[in-house]
């Protein structure tokens, strides 16, 4: 009960974070709109789906990679600043508050991503396939990203370092996912760009739902994701015990 209540209030606080919303909601919408100007009905080669659809998927997942900053900010604000003494004095475990942050940040991020998804559907007629599955995939990817970031913030000593790790992580994902430029040819790089990071894994699954092809790739991605989530959850608990108590 307490957990739900805490999550609810964190969620409300997030709704007032206009900067976060500007960056994670308005910016992807702006970028998609600009990219739409040049996508112009072209078809993306290897996948055989409209360029616009690929842009939409790329943008949604690219921004999910940075969504973990929410978790990081709230962990710092509530559990690592002087606010923590107040939280520590509450009659509920500090880990509960950490879970509450995790839950509300994940949900908030999912919500933002879905808003962008709907925008692309209504304005650009992007075909996302089965929306239920899309929701599930976004939820999974978001949760893993939040876990990655919570590991960062709990695992290192200085918050600034965690912030840099977060930025580096997001950018590395995009680079490995070949958003900016193609990686060199060869089996090693092709493996890297397909399975090495949450961004590519998420894309694999979404493209499979859109095209109905490469299902085995999507299933491998799903398995990797679940394993990743488990490992990250365990390390987060480990780091959390070390840092918060």
């Amino acid at each position: 009960m307490m957990l739900m209540k805490a999550s609810y209030f964190i969620f409300r606080r997030m709704l007032r974070d206009y900067i976060g919303m500007a960056i994670l909601l308005l910016l992807p919408i702006a970028l998609i709109s600009v990219l739409a100007l040049i996508a112009d009905g072209a078809v993306s080669e290897p996948l055989g789906i409209p360029m616009m659809d690929e842009v939409a998927v790329t943008m949604v997942f690219a921004f999910i990679m940075f969504g973990g900053f929410y978790t990081m900010e709230y962990v710092r604000g509530d559990l690592m600043s002087s606010m923590k003494w107040r939280i520590y004095s509450l009659p509920y475990g500090i880990h509960n508050h950490a879970y509450a942050i995790l839950i509300s940040c994940s949900l908030f991020n999912v919500l933002q991503s879905l808003l962008v998804v709907f925008y692309t559907i209504f304005v650009y007629n992007v075909n996302w396939g089965n929306l239920g599955i899309v929701f599930f995939i976004i939820l999974l990817v978001t949760a893993v990203i939040q876990l990655v970031f919570i590991n960062f913030v709990l695992g290192v000593k200085k918050y600034k370092t965690a912030e840099r790790l977060g930025t580096g992580f997001g950018l590395a994902c995009l680079m490995l996912g070949e958003v900016w430029f193609p990686l060199p040819d060869g089996p090693f790089f092709s493996f890297l760009s397909t399975y090495s990071n949450p961004f590519s894994l998420g894309q694999n699954m979404i493209f499979a739902t859109i095209t109905g092809e490469n299902i085995e790739k999507a299933i491998i991605s799903l398995v990797i994701f679940i394993a990743l989530a488990l490992v990250l959850a365990i390390t987060a608990v480990y780091f959390g015990r070390r840092k918060l108590i």
Partner: peptide, 30 residues
Amino acid sequence: TAFSILGGVIVLMGMLGGVMWPVEAMPEYL
């Protein structure tokens, strides 16, 4: 705040300003 919003603004300016692709690829009025 200023710095984090700026990142997005720079990318947008780059896209629209013809850094990412030729401006000719965009509609005439733009």
